[in-house]
Write a protein that binds this DNA or RNA. Structure first.
Lengths: 161, 161
DNA sequence: TACTAATTATAAGGACCCTAACGATATTTG
DNA sequence: CAAATATCGTTAGGGTCCTTATAATTAGTA
């Protein structure tokens, strides 16, 4: 099928400022994430939702009030233009509606519909149960360490180049 | 800017088969990977390469012989159709050429050009040095643990649903 | 008040990635 | 040997995501 990514043995000789271990971490991090996203996408496929629009729907389902695209973009770390497209597809499926913002006429608010809430209630228990299964190969302490490592990497990656 | 992802406190009450920690791991894994991919993409931008086509070029630069799209798709875990598109754009930039396979006329071989090898030599030291910097927030032992966790997750994610 | 700057959502165009299907070629099977 | 099956790269169509540009509205300032 596919083995974990390995780095060539002469790697550090060729790239003196590099670390084979760091590069191996980077490639396997991305690889693992892609596997996970594909798995979640497969769970959402019966509902005609992508992993991105499923996440938007989850965010709206968890929010007590409708949210502006602005804020959704910030949470997903994608551009506002991307959120426009995601809301378009969710609106086409009647999972959300766009409402005018009461005080700022530049803005709209995305509000989940009953049908959207129903869809979220259909897939979220499945998805979260699977996540639990997948990560159960790590015990609690290992999960905490893994999470701590991810947090530190995020900080490191957010520092100005 | 953006904080690490947190899970609502009533999460496990709402989803009995779920684990807040596992879901938090999953979301932060994907988030961290996306940050990393964007960082690498920014490094490749001056060369008009995306992170995906940069990876294809690296694979071809490391291979002693030209490779069939088939095999590139397997290493990248993307479809063959995707590789066709990546090779198209690399060929447009004269970074690779398509050669007929000597024995199997269904296949082609992607061969890196001198110009492609030059491009790879331009960006790889930069990219790998940065990877080293980013991951230096973890010490050697932590990197090994992180890598081991990723390997186990990959296995777990590859098991049939 | 008028001007400028900032922020909003959206549109347009491009890259990546998928599935499904197609034609060509190889391989296996009867 | 002939026919069915499998595999190759590619194409077509759709979704996601990006950057850049645009129109509308708001906020800040002289």
């Amino acid at each position: 099928m596919q083995r974990p990514i390995q780095i060539a043995s002469d790697f550090e000789a060729r790239y003196p400022a590099a670390s084979a271990r760091a590069t191996e971490c980077a490639m396997n991090l991305v690889l693992t994430s892609e596997l996970l996203v594909k798995r979640i996408g497969a769970l959402l496929q019966p509902l005609r939702l992508s992993s991105a629009s499923g996440l938007v729907l989850s965010i709206l389902a968890d929010s007590e009030s409708p949210l502006p695209p602005n804020e959704i973009a910030e949470r997903l770390i994608v551009s506002r233009a991307t959120v426009t497209g995601l809301l378009d597809s969710l609106e086409r499926q009647n999972y959300i509606r766009r409402l005018p913002h009461p005080s700022d006429r530049r803005m709209i608010l995305a509000k989940i519909t009953d049908s959207g809430r129903q869809a979220a209630q259909a897939f979220r228990p499945l998805v979260h149960a699977r996540e639990n299964e997948w990560f159960s190969v790590l015990d609690e302490a290992e999960q905490e360490q893994f999470l701590a490592a991810l947090h530190r990497l995020q900080e490191s990656l957010r520092e100005l180049s």
